[in-house]
Nucleic acid binder design. Structure first.
Lengths: 207, 207
DNA sequence: TCAGTTCTTGTACGAACGTACACGTTTCCC
DNA sequence: GGGAAACGTGTACGTTCGTACAAGAACTGA
């Protein structure tokens, strides 16, 4: 009850040994949700996809809610790493065209980004609508999008507060992602054009 | 095999007698999905919510896929009627402020519109991402939003094609709906402000 | 080395599910 | 009035699920 290990367990995070396997299961869980929706997230399906026996998933995640909650957090963490990598490679001040290109690459271009993670996160978004338990993870996901947009977007129209402009752009991106997911006929170029048209009218004109 | 009734059955629509009960079940199905998500759509849950025995749901819907497909179509139909009613009551030419007010009332104001239907439709949207079988219904839903926006929106910036402007506004509304569903702290006024700021920059300035 | 912990796995049980189906009731048409 | 079609309902079967649990293997620290 007072050993190191039990304290770590109480803190909610396991010590290092099984971390690889834990992430292996979480990665499979994201793929399951992205492919088949929340209703297909079962211990057995995840275990099969991860190549581990059923007992493993119930060992690392005490019940289905726990699995779902940790899967959400994991997906956000992975997406944050992916986005930071893309944004971090950029040099020079933000420009309109540069921000369109980056936001497209990050959110809209399915040939670059694996849409499974985004689809899975949309599922979790809806689940959080019904169950407050998942609210922290959706909060973090919303905040992440806001941060990325903030870093990428040039100075915005001074007549509107910057946070408001960011929220508008974030909402637009959400909507475009949803449309692009459900309407395969929309090309990446069209989506980028839509984004550009909107951004042109929200950022200050550069000389 | 050649009677009137069997022909109607083959056409996919039942004759009139059981229509009331059929809609009673569909209405319950929408509420179930909006409340608990797609995974809670079971014959038993729907039967309970509709106040009918289990046998009734399996009589009107030959399997779960059929129930889901018809529920989607029903939800779109109900939403179309609701929106047409609101839009039809408007007189005079569209104005910026009028369109903001109408679109807010139709899509964003939860105290006016029952968000259960919209949440259910979002669920179906994601399901259609994975299963082509439900694509026609999502197409109709997208088209409906486009039509409503088209009817309500004043002349748009002539430098961009009207369909593009409509798609941008539709995507923005989708995103705002999603944010408002998952983030309770956003007030209707804030959402309307966001919409107004975007529309101000997409429609022609009126004298 | 060796006890304690962490990890791993197979199995089993009760609950909930989709679905089939038999059978009774109402309505319709001639 | 009577046969046919449509409507309505209760029950039962096989499957899949979450979860518990026992029991062994691998690792760790003293």
């Amino acid at each position: 009850m007072s050993t190191t290990s039990s304290r770590l367990l109480e803190a909610g995070r396991r010590p290092g040994r099984g971390e690889v396997r834990r992430r292996q299961i979480l990665d499979a869980a994201v793929r399951i949700i992205g492919t088949g929706g929340l209703s297909s997230l079962t211990h057995r399906a995840v275990a099969d996809a991860a190549g581990v026996p059923l007992g493993s998933t119930t060992y690392y995640f005490k019940d289905r809610d726990d699995l779902l909650r940790q899967t959400m957090a994991y997906a956000v963490e992975i997406e944050r790493a992916r986005m930071d990598e893309i944004v971090g490679a950029v040099s020079g001040p933000p420009s309109l065209e540069g921000s369109v290109r980056l936001l497209t690459e990050i959110f809209l271009d399915k040939s670059v980004a694996d849409p499974l993670y985004d689809l899975a996160l949309f599922e979790m978004f809806l689940e959080a609508t019904r169950n407050d338990e998942y609210r922290p993870q959706t909060r973090e996901w919303s905040a992440l999008i806001g941060e990325i947009v903030d870093q990428v977007l040039p100075p915005t129209d001074p007549t509107i507060p910057r946070p408001v402009a960011l929220q508008i752009v974030a909402a637009l991106i959400d909507g475009l992602m949803l449309e692009s997911a459900s309407n395969q006929e929309l090309t990446v170029e069209e989506l980028a054009d839509h984004l550009r048209i909107a951004l042109e009218r929200l950022v200050v004109a550069d000389a």
